[in-house]
Amino acid sequence: MSSRLRTAVYGVAGVVVLLVIAQIIGTTGLLGPTWPPITEVAAFLFDPSNHRLLGNALAATVSEAALGGLIGIVAGIGFALIAALLPLLAPGLDRFAALIDAVPAIALAPFLILVFGREGTPVIIVALSVTFIIYISTSSGLDSAGRPYRDLFSVLGARRAVRLGRVDVPAALPKLFDGLTLAAPAMILGATIGEWFGARRGLGVLFVSAMQNYRIELLWSAAVLAVLCSLIVYGAALLAQRAVVRRFA
């Protein structure tokens, strides 16, 4: 058995074991009535009468995550290019990015609600965290072409913008896509945090209302949907990243 196949088999087996344990905890009531059997969560998810509620929430969260993610990707790449082309601005942008990362999203909420409104806040929280990740990964990618390449372009008499286009940007692509794989779960997390501050719809709203109304299957179903979304985006980003690495590294 090749090591890759073995890894895959172990991984699948591990997930199955995890699900079985969760199911046993649920059916035996080991952790009380608030840990449902996985089969009941699945039944709830597949029950057509729940699809409208879950679908609306999912659509709201996914569209916020997608819009915020797009803004974040564009802004992150843009700021990284600015820092690369205008080195004078780079130290400020680097420190600002580190600060944005250290600031808890919840602390920004009052400010964001005032400026962007309750419906816009989830999008902006997603955009901020994605901007940070993409800025850092792109910047370090733009720095990643080694000294020989820099020396070569310097000796060839290339202007900064020429080197950026011909070496630094292609060399940065693998790291940029690394950043995208990381941004995937951050997108869903950011959207649901933003929804806690007064959004009308979304998985984040569903988590809180299901908890308060003691609707355990709904709570778990929404959580499963959030995890699946993150994993799907993560998987897509991972595939793209592998392809880019094959081409550019």
Binding site: R6, T7, Y10, G11, V12, A13, G14, V15, V17, L18, A184, P185, I188, L189, T192, I193, E195, W196, L203, G204, F207, V208, A210, M211, L219, A222, A223, A226, V227, S230, L231, Y234
Partner: peptide, 20 residues
């Protein structure tokens, strides 16, 4: 081999879902 992929899945559970 068994635990790491599961850890990955649990890792992407948003904290907003974990808290409730």
């Amino acid at each position: 081999g068994l635990l790491l992929p599961s850890a990955l899945i649990l890792r992407v559970v948003p904290v907003t879902a974990m808290i409730p």
